[in-house]
Design a protein around this nucleic acid. Sequence first.
DNA 1: GCTTGGCACTCCGGCATGCAGAGTGCCAGG
DNA 2: CCTGGCACTCTGCATGCCGGAGTGCCAAGC
Lengths: 338, 338
Amino acid sequence: MLSERRLEVLRAIVQDYVGTEEPVGSKALTERHNLKVSPATVRNDMAALEDEGYIAQPHTSAGRIPTDKGYRLFVDKLAGVKPLSSPERRAIQNFLDGAVDLDDVVGRTVRLLAQLTRQVAVVQYPSLTRSTVRHVELLGLAPARLMLVLITDTGRVEQRLIDCPAPIGETVLADLRARLNSRVVGQRFTEVPSLVQDLPEAFDADDRATISTVLATLLETLVEETEERLMIGGTANLTRFGHDFPLTIRPVLEALEEQVVLLKLLGEAKDSGMTVRIGHENQHEGLSSTSVVSVGYGSGDEAVAKLGVVGPTRMDYPGTMGAVRAVARYVGQILAES
Amino acid sequence: MLSERRLEVLRAIVQDYVGTEEPVGSKALTERHNLKVSPATVRNDMAALEDEGYIAQPHTSAGRIPTDKGYRLFVDKLAGVKPLSSPERRAIQNFLDGAVDLDDVVGRTVRLLAQLTRQVAVVQYPSLTRSTVRHVELLGLAPARLMLVLITDTGRVEQRLIDCPAPIGETVLADLRARLNSRVVGQRFTEVPSLVQDLPEAFDADDRATISTVLATLLETLVEETEERLMIGGTANLTRFGHDFPLTIRPVLEALEEQVVLLKLLGEAKDSGMTVRIGHENQHEGLSSTSVVSVGYGSGDEAVAKLGVVGPTRMDYPGTMGAVRAVARYVGQILAES
DNA sequence: GCTTGGCACTCCGGCATGCAGAGTGCCAGG
DNA sequence: CCTGGCACTCTGCATGCCGGAGTGCCAAGC
């Protein structure tokens, strides 16, 4: 186990390195933090920390920089979450309050988070797996052409065109609409299939094929839209990444464009509480020099989606975590209101 | 006026520079293109071209690179549009054919365009200004709470929550729904306001306030959604931009995040035919070293939106223009089918 | 046994020098 | 008007040098 002072030294190294972006040496450390020991002592501690794998030197006779393991220890044991200032809190609230619909909420959130953390922000749309159906609408566009509209309790609307095997009458359609709604409104997506299974039986044989088609499309939409979408922003902040640009930034941009990658990333995070994945802890190769701070958010106590930021492993963890947590809370509130 | 050969020299310079990214000298020119004159002659021509402002040298005794004006001349007079190969065409068609809804079409288009051109792609959602209403739906969620759903002929769906000043009965609602649809379905957005203006008069005084609220929300949605949205992709291609990274890429990323900027950019382009804006021709400062190639696309003969790519002024114009044009055509086809 | 000051060593970064290569401009001759 | 030749300029690269910062280790001190 590391002694108290050595932990203190590690904390100091992380803080300084995050601030200056340069390897930090023993002398500078003793000057900037009032450790009450001499540089030589600190050097011994640093050697020990290096043996344990918490820090490393880029080259012999350079200062030390934290390793992923070092950051991990820092985040777990040494750093708290820095709360936002109250002006910041007010700004968040004001900014989010202006949103008019779900797209707008997500858009504003992503911009806000990017600004606050000065990093790349990722916000997942509220997931539909735990959502319930608010309304199903069927519109006859042409004799054998329908549009299915699905409205969820999170305010999301999805539509699908349906080509029917046979024309369907307006009254049958109204009937179907009514029955459908009486069965599924307020129900969770996962419940829907079993609830509508026997619906065709209530109708004339002529219409059953069409009705089956409609139901199939509905189920398909439910499944398909369970795949989550997300929005990202603040990519310009990547330019503040480091000195060795193209090599670092390229894979990150590529990863960010692959929504699948990001969804997996967020998916791996814990459902509740904040998750910090540091450097190589992220499976994806392109993100091995980035950290991801993410947290679930939701309208109630249950998290319906996640949001977070992607930044260099050398980031201000307490500040970032504070911002992420605060934003998630306010978004949750906004969603609960609407 | 420039002589035939000087134009030829300019073309050669542009082509070589685009290929090599390095200033091109007189000797290399005569070798790689079979100009039938000596380097010395080319030097004279180059001096003339430089006087006219078509090319410039980064430093004394370096080769020449084209200026914005040089690219302009190249695009206008010297370069054609390079058609895609037929495998490429088939790939486009196949890829776009798999799309399931509008979001998917736009998403696929943007990825496709980014891949084909290896640059940043921008695709505007079909504009609603020229769109017509396919259906308006009103759903009672609670006694004094409605949801308005607007479906357009381009397949877009927009929804708004409405808090009514007074509860409204289900029959009144149905009546309103029917009247509303009979008036506005098939009409252009711009026509709607005058068509619904006198609707409240047909109802009881009790309900008029609510109905006015509904209509106001509808009009608001029409106006608001006329503001176009867009999708971008391929930002990772920015890393192939040039050597002087952070300075160049940063403002571009920032510009790309500001949808307003991009919309303005596309808006400035001609409604029909391809538009190429080179370097400083783009008003936006951050884009002064980029070119934008854009073209309108639409389901019929009328363009309903634009798409294009953003890349370095040093780009393969014929190839890029070919890809942009081809993609626009296929997207138009896809939209026409659905 | 931990801490400390001292000392030799290493390595990076910046700076000046030198040199080859590529390119230009200009001139005089065909 | 084209061409070959020539002197000149500038970049890019390799080399060498030096100062600074930092380390590791050792022996002395608390």
